[in-house]
Design a protein around this nucleic acid. Structure first.
Length: 774
RNA sequence: GCCCGGGUGGCGAAAUGGGCAGACGCAAGGGACUUAAAAUCCCUUGGGGCUAAGUCCCCGUGCGGGUUCGAAUCCCGCCCCGGGCACCA
């Protein structure tokens, strides 16, 4: 049972955290009561920009801030009543933990899965560090929604997550995860099937382009290169040089935002050169335009204006030829036409071939000419893990003039993060640690000559990408995770968390796990067998945020209503996997429910026999059935409703009799208290004691139900005439069709509805309804 | 534009291998208890109509069609809201 560990913010736990944790805790307690061994650990994701920025803001040091926050969090978590195993608590800032974060970096480095390269990266001017693509939201920094990210060319460390793209995608088919989360990951990985085609130039350049529509190659009337494409320089003719240079300068000056999110107005410049269309052999012009991105595909495209919206717009704007090569099978073909339900035209021997068949046919044909190849393309990029900040694990690398880039040997780990006063980042593109020569100058571990430490720290998401592997083994200092412990507790059976990490934490964790598996450290590829995304708690229809001032702090509610009432209320609010709007009005209903249970406990009588109350007993078994199934499936709101219904039944005079001092058989009450205990642990424990038990309720067993007891002996059969309800008849369960129909026809209301008409057809569903068609 | 969710009373929501729409709870109204209030308990509560009485009638699950004896549920075409991706070739 795993919950996403929290970032220990100064504000403390908020309702969203509590909602997530309680839902998790209920499931964990439920599984324990059902006889499973449950390990419910907790930890703190305490490194990272978030903490550091906050420390800067309140003018303190994260090293003193974080421990205080953690103390507060522990208190709050205790108050909520989580069944947490505190012996295995961890913090990512603990050198005993981040030693192994660094170890993972070294192991991946040794396996060739880490590389340092100079690349265009996302730079947040506010955080003064680079960010991974996953941390850029709408062109803005994840932490600063109003701060556009700039593009900078810097030397950075990258994890080769792209090498795992296909496996990360394939495994999504079988892991038991919320559909929404899987869809987001598929989207992010972004696989496209297509072809790589070669366009040759008279100057012997082979320009390769990626296309998902090789079937339209006969309609490629020009090529476009990204401004950064390496061939641009050489393909530009003398006359076009000034224009091209000016254009490249202009697009280099634009940051990623104005280029990607800004105006979609097409711009571009002709290079003066031509290439040969491999299908038609015609000579087509080569342009440079920034609507083609260097980071995707080959950084060059074949433009088919008749069948691509963007190419069409560009061609119209610059008066380039538009050649239709596809005709829709049905209806008129309006250009640009991008549909697949079509056949080829103006395509030589491929005319009349359906597009779907033309893709492999044309790819094969060009392949035979040496000018084409089937190609898969992924949208996902390598994971940039360097951060030019202070509050993180230093990247365990030493640069040596003689030996080059050397990883820190395992026996020298961890590379401890030094305590420095001036941890403020600057715009230079290097970490604050680079200002501390006494720290970064170290002997090279290989040759012993003076070397220089890497001064960047790693991304917080690296810390959190393996914490679940550490939990069972927190007491081992000589290894990241113990084999026996890992075999016992991992992979995680049930992981519940927010969907905001679908392409961040959840993707990185899968990648790290997969890499460690390949290196032989783990026996499983996928870390989380089951993952369920819980919903979001909003306030007044809007996401809670400090800037909106609508953050709900749980402490006040817990103080006023008690932790259990608050727990049950949050779970009763709506479907757990959808979340809901936090309003305080409904909480009183939950309190009333618990009060009713309390008074029933006061009326308990162990000497009474439950079989004397068959209706209540039946309802009990029905309730056990429903609560068991619903709790297992995280449908907490309906499980609670079922328990409320049962309490209403127990309280109704018809069931237990009238009078002032009616007693309830303990055997009708005890199972309810057990079912309630995952939801309201403190309250149930006390009820349990009042019922005369001396051992904890959590040592009790989850009640089982008997289908034959739950079974109703009479059912109300609905009688419809022409599909409209006209009457109901009470019949014994399992009544034969003939007899049921006979009784249905005898009903007054039914007779009135039929009148003189003849019944033409009878539809009968046993124990449910009879429909008479006249 | 593409991909996931979702749209049901005054409100949060139940009910989807098609079979009583609105369980459970909130709010509201009425009543009991009380000097009074709180708390508690009981009753009513989707809209409209008819009645002396209801085992009465009609309408109703975002909109328009369809399939079916029967659709909140399945199919086709739309609209709206939330989330993700997006000049991705």
């Amino acid at each position: 049972q795993l919950m996403m560990f929290p970032y220990p913010s100064a504000e403390g736990l908020h309702v969203g955290n509590v909602f997530a944790f309680v839902g998790n805790d209920i499931h964990g307690r439920f599984q324990r009561l059902r006889g499973c061994q449950v390990f419910e650990p907790i930890g703190f994701d305490a490194f990272g920009i978030h903490s550091e920025n906050y420390a800067l803001k309140v003018n303190t040091h994260p090293g003193t801030l974080i421990p205080n926050n953690i103390v507060r969090f522990r208190q709050q978590l205790r108050r909520v009543g989580l069944m947490v195993n505190w012996d295995h608590e961890l913090s990512t800032t603990d050198p005993r933990y981040y030693k192994w974060t660094q170890w993972i970096f070294v192991k991946l480095f040794e396996a060739g899965l880490v590389e340092r390269k100079r690349a265009p990266v996302n730079w947040c001017p506010e955080c003064k560090t680079v960010l991974a693509n996953e941390q850029v939201i709408n062109g803005n920094c994840e932490r600063h929604p109003d701060t556009p990210v700039h593009q900078r060319f810097l030397e950075q460390w990258f994890f080769k997550i792209t090498a795992f793209a296909q496996r990360l995608l394939d495994n999504l088919d079988w892991i038991d995860w919320s559909e929404s989360t899987r869809a987001m990951q598929r989207n992010w990985i972004g696989r496209s099937e297509g072809a790589e085609l070669i366009f040759e130039t008279p100057t012997d350049h082979r320009i390769s382009v990626f296309t998902t529509r090789p079937d339209t190659v006969f309609g490629a009337t020009y090529l476009v290169l990204a401004p950064e494409h390496p061939f641009v320089e050489r393909l530009t003719t003398r006359e076009q040089r000034p224009a091209i240079q000016e254009y490249r300068r202009a697009s280099a000056a634009k940051d990623l935002v104005s280029r990607k999110v800004g105006s979609k107005e097409k711009t571009g410049v002709f290079t003066g050169s031509y290439a040969r269309n491999p299908a038609t052999d015609e000579s087509i012009p080569i342009w440079v335009a920034d609507y083609v991105l260097m980071e995707y595909g080959t950084g060059a495209i074949m433009a088919v204006p008749a069948h691509d919206e963007r190419d069409f717009e560009f061609a119209t704007q610059f008066d380039l030829p538009i050649q239709q090569v596809v005709r829709a099978t049905e209806g008129e073909t309006v250009l640009p036409y991008e549909g697949w339900d079509a056949v080829l035209i103006n395509s030589g021997q491929f005319d009349n071939l359906p597009c779907v068949e033309a893709v492999p046919a044309i790819t094969q044909w060009l392949k035979e000419k040496g000018l084409g190849e089937v190609r898969l393309q992924y949208r996902i990029h390598d994971w940039c893990v360097s951060r030019q900040r202070y509050w993180g694990p230093p990247i365990p690398i030493i640069y040596c003039d003689a030996c080059g880039t050397v990883p820190v040997p395992e026996q020298d780990l961890p590379v401890t993060l030094p305590f420095i006063e001036d941890f403020r980042p600057d715009a230079s593109g290097v970490s604050p640690l680079a200002r501390h020569k006494d720290w970064f100058v170290v002997p090279c571990p290989q040759c012993g000559r003076p070397g220089r430490r890497e001064t960047d720290v790693s991304d917080t998401f690296l810390d959190s990408s393996w914490y679940f592997l550490r939990y069972p083994s927190t007491d081992f200092d000589d290894k990241p995770f113990d084999r026996t412990r890992t075999a016992k507790w991992l992979p995680v059976d049930c992981y519940i968390g927010g969907n905001e990490h679908a392409v961040l934490h959840l993707l990185y964790a899968r990648f790290i796990n997969m890499a460690l598996h390949d290196l032989g450290y783990l026996d499983f590829e996928e870390p989380f067998r089951q993952f369920r995304a819980h919903g979001t708690i909003v306030k007044d229809g809007a996401k809670m945020s400090k800037s909106r001032g609508n953050v709900v702090i749980p402490d006040k509610f817990i103080a006023e209503w008690g932790a259990d009432t608050f727990r049950v209320y949050l779970m009763f609010l709506g479907p757990y996997q959808e979340g809901g709007d936090f309003r305080d009005e409904g909480i009183v209903g939950v309190r009333r429910f618990l009060d009713k249970v309390w008074s029933l406990v006061g009326q308990a009588d162990a000497s009474l026999d439950a079989t004397a109350f068959p209706d209540a007993l039946r309802k009990l078994h029905q309730t056990i059935r429903k609560v068991t199934v619903d709790t297992a499936e995280l449908r907490y709101n309906t499980a609670i409703a079922a328990m409320m219904e049962y309490v209403n039944v127990l309280r109704s005079p018809a069931v237990l009799g009238d009078g002032d001092d009616v007693q309830v058989p303990t055997s009708l009450l005890a199972p309810l208290i057990v079912m309630l205990s995952p939801y309201a642990p403190h309250f149930s424990e006390e009820c349990w004691e009042r019922l005369g038990n001396t051992r904890s309720i959590f040592l009790a067993a989850w009640p089982t139900y008997d289908e034959s007891v739950a079974q109703e002996d009479t059912v109300e059969l609905v009688v419809q005439v022409n599909g409209k309800v006209r009457g109901r008849v009470l019949v014994p369960t399992g009544l034969a069709e003939e007899e049921a129909v006979r009784r249905a026809m005898a009903d007054d209301g039914v007779r009135r509805a039929i009148r003189e008409r003849r019944v033409k057809k009878v539809v009968s569903v046993p124990d449910r309804l009879v429909n008479l068609v006249v």
